[in-house]
């Protein structure tokens, strides 16, 4: 596993948000999702930089959306998770589950 294909914590959260939001995923909604569901308040730039990094790693993909008047005539950029992205998320989850199972057993033994 090379350095680039590993997921950072913020990357993991952003990627999960994109996955949860589905077709509605754009920069703004990801920020809102992070704030409301993960309790993480991040700046616009942070979100976009993270999304860009995810695209570079091949975990996310993006396309141009529809312009709207409340956006000053600017188009949205919509995001979706790629197969590699899903794979990376699952890999992270597998590692965590594995580690947690050890912890659960230990805590059960300790509590037992």
């Amino acid at each position: 596993m090379t350095r680039e294909s590993r997921l950072g914590e913020l990357e993991e959260l952003v990627l999960l948000s994109v996955l949860r939001l589905g077709e509605r995923a754009d920069g703004g909604s990801v920020r809102d999702e992070l704030a409301s569901e993960a309790g993480r308040s991040v700046s616009v730039s942070t979100v976009y930089v993270t999304l860009m990094r995810l695209e570079e790693k091949g975990f996310a993909t993006s396309w141009k959306g529809e312009p709207t008047p409340e956006r000053g005539g600017k188009a949205r950029r919509m995001y979706a998770v790629t197969e590699e992205g899903v794979g990376a998320l699952e890999a992270v989850r597998a590692v965590r589950d594995h580690l947690w199972s050890g912890v659960d057993a230990a805590s059960e033994a300790a509590g037992g």
């Binding site: 703004g28 920020r31 993006s62 709207t68 409340e70 956006r71 000053g72 600017k74 949205r76």
Partner: peptide
């Protein structure tokens, strides 16, 4: 690029809110 435009759009939207 339109990536920049998208960011500005986001900013604009939230600013209005």
């Amino acid at each position: 690029t339109d990536r920049g435009a998208a960011i500005l759009g986001d900013l604009h939207e939230e600013f209005l809110a």
